[in-house]
Design a protein around this nucleic acid. Sequence first.
DNA 1: TGCGATAAGTTCAGGCATCAAACTTATTGG
DNA 2: CCAATAAGTTTGATGCCTGAACTTATCGCA
Lengths: 390, 390
Amino acid sequence: MSRPQPASQHTVRRHNSALVLDAIADAPGSSRAAVAARTGLTKATVSSLVDRMIGAGLVAEGEAQARSGPGRRGTALHLSPTGPHGLGVEIGVDYLATCLVDLTGRVRARWVRPSDNRASSPARVLAKVASAVRTAAKQDVPIGGVGVAVPGLVEVAGGSLRLAPNLGWREVDVRGELTRRLELDVPVLVGNEANLAALAELWHGDVAADFLHISGEIGIGAGIVVGGALFEGVSGFGGEIGHLSVDPRGPACACGSRGCLERLAGQDEIVRAAGVTGVDELLARLAAGDRTATTAVRSAARWLGVALSGAVNLLDLPTVVLGGTYARLEPWLHEPLHAELDRRVVSAEWSPVRVVASSLGAEAAVRGAATTAVRAILADPDPYVTSVLA
Amino acid sequence: MSRPQPASQHTVRRHNSALVLDAIADAPGSSRAAVAARTGLTKATVSSLVDRMIGAGLVAEGEAQARSGPGRRGTALHLSPTGPHGLGVEIGVDYLATCLVDLTGRVRARWVRPSDNRASSPARVLAKVASAVRTAAKQDVPIGGVGVAVPGLVEVAGGSLRLAPNLGWREVDVRGELTRRLELDVPVLVGNEANLAALAELWHGDVAADFLHISGEIGIGAGIVVGGALFEGVSGFGGEIGHLSVDPRGPACACGSRGCLERLAGQDEIVRAAGVTGVDELLARLAAGDRTATTAVRSAARWLGVALSGAVNLLDLPTVVLGGTYARLEPWLHEPLHAELDRRVVSAEWSPVRVVASSLGAEAAVRGAATTAVRAILADPDPYVTSVLA
DNA sequence: TGCGATAAGTTCAGGCATCAAACTTATTGG
DNA sequence: CCAATAAGTTTGATGCCTGAACTTATCGCA
């Protein structure tokens, strides 16, 4: 934990720059006067800050606004579509994905490629990642930051990957390595794949500010959002739910414990129990009404329900979002999962837990990573502005 | 959620005042120069801020410091013992308690009185509370704020009590009512009793920045501290653990669900199962090795273990603090509770959960309430300073 | 006793970001 | 064409921090 920093006039401008930018992002097309009214700053201050940000290419002026009554028309302000873009990369267990988003969070390009990252050394994978980033950065848009999603425990402040069981990685300085390998001089942010998917859901999905996002791929990850902010937990360990023991007398798990959620409701287990070779085949069988497949998914749903009810009870979360593979399986998970939650969640009687499938699908994590990179600029634009104008 | 406020020079001073005060609180006896070095502010700034705070009575100068080498000796600074005090009140189910602390958090006076608050209307109880506060405030020290601990769900920002099942209260505007009834012109802060006890443990106990504090009185409450800050959760509902369902097929609870922790491990249930009339008798029987009493406590410990392992798994908390009645029962709870945690907590294998009894005992909540009041001044001294100097 | 070195604390000019208010510019409606 | 209205700019004042010079206090050594 670092000591708090002293504040000076510069800090004030920093704070207010973020405030102004946030107002513009929230209500695109506002005039300077509207932003002033919204933020509580004076028109003079807003003008000065906006001019700086236009100079740095974060904000652009649009057409003069229409107006019904008398008076001069305001000039519309919005986040510049040619401003810095965020580049997201996801290091999956068996693929690499990238995603390019503009300041408003809109996806401008994406790219996915299979890659067995379990079989390669971290150094080799990171070289591939660097090359993927360079390829994606070849678009003629400026890159303002890179976000990296990894399936493991991340020490967020340092950008170092502590442990990724499903990759077989341990203590890899992802930020340091990538910063070194990229010739781009931009910040590299590293985050847990489940947390970034949850943030994508918060920013681009249709759920409110409090929810638990659970995604099943090779592993099971949960991202908890409370009050519109990611709950990082102790040492960035926000809601590692995969190895929650849901059946203390259940089968042994690779982690050493027994009856872990991942062991009972993970994608691998569902596929195995259904007797299929992959998720696509599983979905085909389910659609065809195959009994074995249905049973396998319903069993997973019940274990998921046990784990989720604990989290929901403890945190009083109103909503659960199913992401990743679970989003695709949602129609078959729905009923047993809901039954379990209704039975176990205390507050279910007067306000049932809402369970929704993510609308973002498999791209949630990369998109979250990319958006995190631009959000970092929006949340504290002044260093960026200063660096561009200097 | 309120929009963020614009910043101005005043905000800077506010921030830095808190920074300086924090440095003095953290290292009492520091000189202005030491504070400057520690905070990163210049000596000039520190001098100016310190002088203001001395003027307002928050900081006092001590003796000149001893020094080994050459050079002028610094004047020791510390929080003023005659500065504003925090007054805590706890509205228990069957008692009222008050506690007066100075700026450093040291207890200067306390007072407890039985009072069956279940049987009285909120208005009558709040009148008693107001009179207790007035009595406690009769000491000749200035009161800087009042903290109120209540056994129920509190909407912290508004200071309103949403629901207190064990008091039979619902939607009581505690802050508004008390502010009106007290002639003191100081802020009144209202908080959940379990959360305030957890904060007391954080500030005055001997545990680090991450833990779960669980206290058993009439109800069971948990306060979760992550990264040295209280985790408030959704709508101030931080870790309401009492009605976590630990045995879905267990006995019906007053709340409508079944097998709630409170129903299986609450003080009332332990006392009933042990066949005694109260906790004091229970302790006597336990000390005498009474079999029924021991069995009752061990059973409660196991259910507690189930509930706590869920929370600990999800939040990756390293420590559990037993407060309230559980602190007194700790010797008998210890073994079965630990067994359950070791069995259910995933990370227990490489870092076992530490379970400790609170050293603060029954006074934790009042003390937390009182300290919250002074902490509010220390965390943002400028409004107080300005009001005193004006 | 006196002097140089060292460190604490104060004073003061300078800089910077905000604010309030006056001012300029653009637009509508009569 | 002008009054009314609103957007956006200019200007001077204010407040707070900074850096550097300055004053004060103390030690060690001759």
